[in-house]
Amino acid sequence: MKIQFLGSSQPGLRWMMQYYRANPQLDRSRAFQSFEVAKRRICDLSPPKETYEDFSDVWEVSIQRTAFAFLYTIRADTAYIIDVRDQRGYRSAEALRSFDRELRKNYGS
């Protein structure tokens, strides 16, 4: 299975990058290794039994030893990364909503 990122993953990816830049005491390279490992797990393994919240086709895979997790869905032979979620809930709801509005304006619905 191949991996693709959706535009909706932008705020999560930016937040994660910003978090590691703002906290140089954290081991960024180890976090990035975990990021790669989690991606490979999505490619190589079947999705977990439990889905994210009550979505029927969204799964969550934690990025080990970080506070982040991938939310992804599958279409045919592609796993689409929807979001890189901060599991502590530290992101700004207003920033997420504002980004979402912009994305919907650009891509319909």
Binding site: G7, S8, D83, D100, Y107
Partner: peptide, 13 residues
């Protein structure tokens, strides 16, 4: 807000 973003992501997928 994350849930709303997930719904948009599913639309993009």
């Amino acid at each position: 807000a994350t849930r709303q973003l997930v719904e948009t992501g599913l639309m993009l997928a």
